[in-house]
Every structure is written in structure tokens, then in C-alpha cells.
Design a protein around this nucleic acid. Structure first.
Length: 207
DNA sequence: AAGAGGATGAACT
DNA sequence: GTTCATCCTCTTG
């Protein structure tokens, strides 16, 4: 058994059940997002995230506690994936947080590839590893094989094809940069909230 | 029943 | 900097 295959447990429910989604978003930086489909693993360190907090956050799909078929996943107990189709093309992956009924979520915007890079390249139709392989919320889902078909899937269950691990990569507060979220100009004053967080010195973050 | 627009990315000029 | 691919969800009538 190689080091990559050694068992690391998924982050526990308590990690996701916290009621401060901004705190969870920051804590997700440096954690490792893993998928395993058909026995093939891909993984990457999370380098960029955004927090979304219904009901008061106008940028959230669940703003004002709007419950629709699509937003229902975000009202679930923390520890699931909220995956939706954006612009008809891109599958965007979010981590659902907070207890049931509170529609909080963290959008994962970029990861640093760690495992299964050949498979990532294949899924992305690329031939040479480059930062763009997993940089951007639509790019990383394609590389990891995540699709809307997995909306609502558990990040906690044994045997789930998607989970997040702590591999002991320490992120100090001074390593985290913050700024306004991308593409939420429609959200009024909420658009100015600095709820996008990224690893300051990472090459695997856009712009 | 129909239409608008979106938590983007890639390929252009 | 601009364009456009592409389709689901939500709103309106």
C-alpha cells in the first residue's frame, strides 16, 4: 500500500455542523478534497473558497430561505455536497454546512492537484499539468469527475465517492487573503462582503 | 407555455 | 476586453 492510499478519515460531522459558515470556509483552506469513482482516485488541496449564508445573504440561491427543488440540498444537515449546473455547462461543487434548516454552503473555487493527475488531465482534455487544471469552480469539478448527478451526496458516509480529509497541512491566519465574491454583482450590498478566501501564496488560485 | 438569466471557461481580437 | 457555448431553474402570464 502506497502512502497515498493510506487511510485518512473524512472530516467529522462537527466540522460541518458549525453555524458560522465563514469560519468553516476558512477552515476548509488546506484540506484535501477526494473523489473515488470506479476505484480511481483524484484529490487536491483546497486553495480558494467562498461562503454563502442564507437567509440574509442575497448572493445565495437560498436567499430569504427560498425553498425550491434546487435549493433543498442546502437546507440539509451539514456534511453533504450541493452541486448545481451553472451557465448550462459548469457543475459547481459546494459543501453544505450548519444544522438542518440553516441553508449555509461553501463554494470550492480552486484546488491544488495532488493525486490522480493523469485522470484529471484526461477528464479536462489537457495534456500537460498547469495551474488551470483545477483552478476555477467549473474546472475542478470536471477534473474530479463531480456532476450534478451527485447533488446531495454525503461527505461523511463510509464508501461515499466524495469526501474531505485533513492531511495536517497547516494554514495560519496570515496565509489567508480575503476579498469580495466573484460574479455576484446582482446581490446588492452583499456583493461587497469579503467572503472569498484563498491561500495568499498559492499558484493554484485565479488571477 | 415562454422567456430571461446565471456563484464560468475558453477562445477569440 | 469581448463573445459565446448551453441548459436548468425560476418567474411571469
Amino acid at each position: 500500500m502506497t502512502n497515498d492510499e493510506s487511510f485518512i478519515p473524512p472530516l467529522p460531522p462537527e466540522f460541518y455542523l458549525r453555524t458560522d459558515v465563514v469560519e468553516v470556509a476558512r477552515a476548509l483552506l488546506g484540506k484535501v478534497l477526494v473523489t473515488r469513482f470506479d476505484g480511481r482516485r483524484t484529490a487536491g488541496r483546497i486553495t480558494e473558497v467562498e461562503a454563502y449564508r442564507a437567509p440574509d445573504d442575497r448572493a445565495s440561491h437560498a436567499w430569504g430561505n427560498r425553498r425550491t427543488a434546487r435549493t433543498e440540498t442546502m437546507f440539509c444537515e451539514g456534511g453533504r455536497a450541493y452541486i448545481y449546473l451553472c451557465y448550462g455547462i459548469h457543475h459547481l461543487f459546494n459543501v453544505v454546512t450548519a444544522p438542518e434548516g440553516l441553508a449555509h454552503a461553501v463554494l470550492v473555487r480552486a484546488i491544488e492537484p495532488l493525486e490522480g493527475i493523469d485522470l484529471m488531465l484526461e477528464r479536462r482534455n489537457l495534456h500537460t499539468p498547469a495551474p488551470k487544471l483545477c483552478t476555477g469552480p467549473g474546472a475542478l469539478t470536471q477534473a474530479l469527475g463531480l456532476r450534478t448527478a451527485q447533488n446531495g451526496i454525503s461527505l461523511l458516509d463510509t464508501g461515499s465517492p466524495v469526501w474531505i480529509e485533513d492531511r495536517g497541512f497547516a494554514v495560519s491566519e496570515t496565509e489567508i487573503a480575503a476579498g469580495p465574491r466573484i460574479g455576484v454583482d446582482y446581490a446588492g450590498e452583499c456583493a461587497a462582503w469579503e467572503w472569498r478566501f484563498w491561500l495568499k501564496h498559492s499558484k493554484f488560485v485565479k488571477r
